[in-house]
């Protein structure tokens, strides 16, 4: 077993009557690109904020890089980079000023760690005299990532880094994360997009403040117990209602241009154009979700 860099033991947190997290246990290995996948309100941000020492858990403990997030929070902050879901750099400072500012308050300089951010920063360097508030969404994310990296953290927490970013920039962003991983930085990213899950080494599916499963994306999809079929028609919606009315059909859900169908027993061969398909992480997630709701 590899070294564990993040360890969470029985973490619970509630806001008033709302239980945001219940008994979270999570281990993340050094050098992993770890994904925290779940819908809005699942508790992803709360977990991130606890791990980044921004809020206190009601119970349980967490260690990042062998530092207790409560007791050693001061030392911890030099070891982590945190990128909140909302753009939170100074919009009235320029790109370069933001980067210099964050380098300086970590007592380092851009020069010292330029190799870490070079790949990212070169995209925004032509705009270094522009106010950070006037950048496009994708560029803002790149700047935020540069600022989170400038002090050479050993763990990077990225809270929904691709929300609100166009598909091309999203793809680019994940490529950048891959390169950072190659430099030995552990990356923990959360996302509501299931397609991004396949790009992670391991993922945790989280729902209603509980972790449903922690596995590699391959193992998660392999664990999908049923045969999955796909089908499409000119009017997918009419087909959806029709199939859901079929007593043999266990579930029928719309995925992009196709309907994903599972059956209670064997496939109903009377349905035309039905073809077998590989389950995606999203299929597994929905299955796990329905199970846990039962």
């Amino acid at each position: 077993m590899k070294d564990l860099i993040v360890k969470c033991f029985n973490i619970s947190k509630s806001y008033g009557n709302i239980k945001a997290l219940t008994d979270i246990n999570l281990n993340i290995e050094k050098g992993e690109l770890f994904g925290l996948i779940g819908p809005d309100g699942a508790g992803k941000t709360t977990l991130f904020r606890i791990m980044a020492s921004l809020i206190l858990a009601d119970s349980g403990s967490a260690f990042v890089d062998n530092l207790d997030v409560v007791k050693d929070y001061k030392a911890l902050r030099r070891h982590i980079g945190y990128m909140p879901g909302r753009f939170s750099l100074y919009q009235d400072l320029t790109v370069e000023e933001n980067l210099i500012f964050f380098a300086k308050i970590f007592n380092t300089s851009i020069k010292e760690n330029y190799h870490l951010i070079e790949n990212i920063y070169k995209h925004i360097e032509p705009f270094k005299n522009r106010m950070a508030g006037k950048l496009s969404g994708g560029m803002k994310q790149k700047l935020a990532l540069s600022c989170a990296l400038i002090h050479k953290p050993s763990v990077l927490f990225l809270d929904e880094p691709t929300t609100g970013v166009d598909p091309v920039s999203r793809k680019e962003f994940w490529e950048i994360l891959g390169k950072l991983k190659a430099q030995g930085i552990t990356i923990i990213a959360s996302t509501p997009y299931m397609d991004e899950a396949n790009l992670c080494d391991r993922i945790a599916l989280i729902q209603h403040g509980k972790i449903l499963s922690v596995e590699t994306p391959q193992k998660i999809t392999a664990a999908y117990g049923k045969k999955l079929y796909r089908i499409n028609a000119a009017d997918n919606f009419a087909l959806l209602t029709q199939l859901r009315g079929n007593p043999e059909v266990a579930s029928c859900l719309l995925f992009g241009g196709y309907l994903h169908v599972t059956f209670k027993n064997d496939a109903d061969t009377s349905i035309p154009n039905l073809e077998i398909t590989e389950p995606s992480v999203e299929d597994c997630f929905i299955e796990l979700m329905t199970k846990s709701n039962d």
């Binding site: 020492s53 921004l54 980079g81 909140p84 753009f87 939170s88 964050f102």
Partner: peptide, 14 residues
Amino acid sequence: ESGTIEQINVTPVG
């Protein structure tokens, strides 16, 4: 309001 305090809070600034 602008959220910048989040970013400052994860730095060693006391």
